[in-house]
């Protein structure tokens, strides 16, 4: 078969696979909630900027009709440890559901030990430890988004006790971003954090949609206060 023919064949197959995840929710209504949830998650995983809102709406409709959180917690537990992307997706959805019942499981994740150092001398962040770290980072996002007194305490514990500096820093960022009054939150954190984490508190966030002038101003202020050869 020519390369072009093979290309066309797989393009059609790929489109068909993506099309499956784009079926409207009504077509799944006879499926069990678990099956519907799986389809909705696959839809989000393969969504781009054009169809994201539509795919999220599918999940939102499902969440209105069913108690989705226990299903998501079970899904996270059942996902193989090495399926890092699927675990992050599950944690992301759990976080977006903003349900305090998830906190125990999130604390359990953040209290679990990371795998040993990857011994990857190039540090390309492709080993088990680096990948597991990204799961813990996602867990800090889910905790922070709860925006409750209890979740803030969990983040403070994570900043103090987590074995990874990267995760501790992510907890600082999640705490700050989810705080209503950021100047108060910053003062609070600067009082209790060790020197190594203090610079993270006021780091500006680079993101699509940011106010570029505000970003530049915040970055200039940060550099004035914290910039040095090494900290």
């Amino acid at each position: 078969m020519s390369r072009i023919a093979v290309a066309v064949l797989y393009a059609v197959a790929g489109a068909a696979a993506i099309g499956e995840s784009q079926r409207p929710i009504s077509q799944y209504s006879n499926d069990s909630p678990v099956t519907q949830l799986d389809q909705a998650l696959l839809g989000i995983q393969t969504s781009n900027r054009y169809d994201l809102a539509k795919r999220v709406q599918v999940l939102a409709d499902l969440a209105k009709a069913h108690d989705v959180l226990p299903l998501m917690l079970a899904k996270y537990d059942a996902t193989p440890e090495t399926e890092y992307s699927a675990r992050r997706l599950a944690l992301g959805i759990i976080g977006e559901l903003r349900d305090e019942r998830a906190l125990d499981m999130l604390v359990k994740i953040l209290s679990s030990k990371l795998p040993p150092d990857d011994n990857d001398s190039e540090s390309l962040r492709t080993g088990a430890r680096a990948k597991e770290e990204t799961v813990h980072m996602k867990a800090t996002h889910a905790v922070g988004y709860l925006r409750s007194a209890q979740s803030r305490r969990v983040l403070l514990n994570t900043m103090r006790d987590h074995e990874s500096y990267t995760v501790r820093a992510e907890a600082v960022s999640a705490y700050m971003w989810n705080s209503t009054d950021q100047s108060v939150a910053a003062q609070e954190l600067l009082r209790v954090l060790p020197d190594s984490l203090q610079p993270v508190v006021t780091m500006p966030i680079f993101d699509r949609g940011m106010d570029r002038a505000a970003f530049d101003k915040a970055l200039a202020e940060w550099r004035k206060r914290w910039s040095r050869e090494e900290y």
Binding site: I44, L52, V56, L91, G92, I93, I94, G95, E96, S123, R125, A130, E133, T134, M137, K138, T140, H141, A142, G144, Y145, Y165, T166, A169, E170, S173, A174, W177, N178, P199, V200, M203, P204, I205, F206, D207, F215, L219, W222, R223, W226, S227, R228, E229, E230, Y231
Partner: peptide, 27 residues
């Protein structure tokens, strides 16, 4: 997460910013 990991773990003189809002889903 990869960008933030690198910024915190592999840079001697961090540039002073973090990448993307720490929201559970980057929506």
């Amino acid at each position: 997460s990869t960008a933030n990991s690198i910024l915190t773990s592999n840079i001697l003189n961090p540039p002073g910013w973090r990448c993307a809002r720490p929201r559970p889903m980057h929506w």
